[in-house]
């Protein structure tokens, strides 16, 4: 993949998101952003800057108010809810600050959950999930319960879940927010490896130390984007 000429995975044109409160909140305004296949991009900003809104729009968890959002050339605004859900399930891998692992399911079952809403046969699902776990270095603990893992290990399980089925982009919301600096570095090392392999990663953070590990850095302030050169 790295040898292919970069093609845009995500293209935002004049995109805005206005919350219809009184007075209306313009969380995003006139956003232009292109994320190319294989990019590792960090979106930095203080709280209230609009970075979470941007992530939700990018992740098809929220609809934008105006402008254009093309996901692999497909206009997201024309999709039905079910198609957007399908897009989330197959093309986007989410990694959250609080991991969101199900405590009563084993590590392997948590990873396998990624395929549940893809209307996909269970054939070899276990093998695929094991491969994903091996990729994040947890191949030896498939039957552990998440509660017995450290925070860093839990986040790696979440990354494995996000990787299952080779999504077009990994969307990470403060992926190291709940981790100490040493563990954070390990997670970022993992992202670096994935980036090397050609994965497209978009990472939201308020921490510039984290953001500097990324290849591209974008600042968001009051709903406006500014790319660091």
């Amino acid at each position: 993949m790295p040898d292919q000429p970069p093609s845009p995975t995500i293209e935002l044109r004049e995109l805005s998101r206005v919350f219809p409160t009184e007075p209306p909140v313009r969380a995003l305004e006139g956003v232009d952003l292109t994320i190319y296949n294989g990019d590792w991009i960090a979106i930095e900003g203080p709280s209230g800057s609009g970075k979470s809104t941007l992530l939700n729009v990018l992740g098809c968890l929220d609809r934008h108010t105006s402008g254009t959002y093309l996901f692999e050339g497909m206009d997201v605004s024309t999709l039905t809810d079910r198609e957007r859900a399908g897009l989330r399930g197959r093309r986007i891998g989410f990694v959250f600050q609080s991991f969101h692992l199900l405590g009563h399911r084993s590590v392997l079952e948590n990873v396998m959950m990624a395929e549940v809403y893809r209307h996909q046969s269970r054939h070899e699902r276990r093998t695929r999930a094991t491969t994903a776990l091996e990729k994040v270095g947890l191949g030896h603990r498939p039957d552990f319960m998440p509660t017995r893992l450290s925070g860093g290990e839990q986040q790696r399980v979440a990354v494995a879940r996000a990787l299952l089925g080779a999504p077009s982009v990994l969307l990470c919301d403060e992926p190291t927010g709940n981790l100490d600096s040493k563990t954070s570095d390990m997670i970022l090392d993992l992202f670096a490896e994935l980036h090397e392999e050609g994965y497209t990663i978009a990472m939201i953070t308020h921490d510039s130390d984290i953001a500097q590990r990324a290849e591209r850095r974008i600042h968001i302030t009051d709903g406006h984007l500014q790319e660091a050169s």
């Binding site: 497909m74 024309t78 999709l79 039905t80 809810d81 079910r82 198609e83 859900a85 399908g86 897009l87 989330r88 399930g89 197959r90 093309r91 199900l102 405590g103 009563h104 399911r105 079952e109 549940v116 809403y117 893809r118 209307h119 996909q120 046969s121 269970r122």
Partner: peptide, 30 residues
């Protein structure tokens, strides 16, 4: 919901009966 075009239908969200029952029982026995 109506399908918009054939090439997108492969991307539709869906769940097999086996998976649904599995999720339900896992939810119950949690």
């Amino acid at each position: 919901q109506r399908k918009k075009s054939t090439d997108r239908s492969g991307d539709l969200s869906g769940i097999t009966a086996v998976d649904l029952l599995d999720e339900v029982s896992a939810g119950l026995f949690a």
